[in-house]
């Protein structure tokens, strides 16, 4: 097990939130969080930032006639390849 400094721990926070850590890396970050309140706040902000950006992604309503245009493009592509 490695004792992480705050600078090392913060570089792992997004991977921690993405469930991208496992084994010793995960244990190291969790052990650091147990003893560092400041890093808990930073982790909370990383989570807040993710939620904030995710909630502002454009939904992009489908434009009228898109399916028809895709069908036409597929029909053209199938003709051209024959």
């Amino acid at each position: 097990m490695t004792v992480l400094t705050c600078a090392e721990a913060v570089t792992q926070f997004f991977a921690y939130l993405d469930r991208g850590l496992a084994g010793e890396s995960l244990e190291d970050v969790e052990a650091h969080l147990e003893r560092c309140l400041s890093c808990c706040d930073k982790l909370a902000f990383a989570r807040q930032l993710d939620t904030f950006v995710r909630s502002r992604l454009p939904e992009g309503a489908m434009p009228d006639g898109l399916e028809a245009r895709v069908r036409q493009a597929l029909a053209r592509a199938a003709t051209e390849s024959s």
Binding site: P58, E59, G60, M62, E67, V70, R71
Partner: peptide
């Protein structure tokens, strides 16, 4: 594939 058009389009917009 076409039932997933809305999903593919949303990803493309993003």
């Amino acid at each position: 594939a076409l039932p997933h058009l809305a999903h593919v389009h949303r990803l493309a917009v993003r």
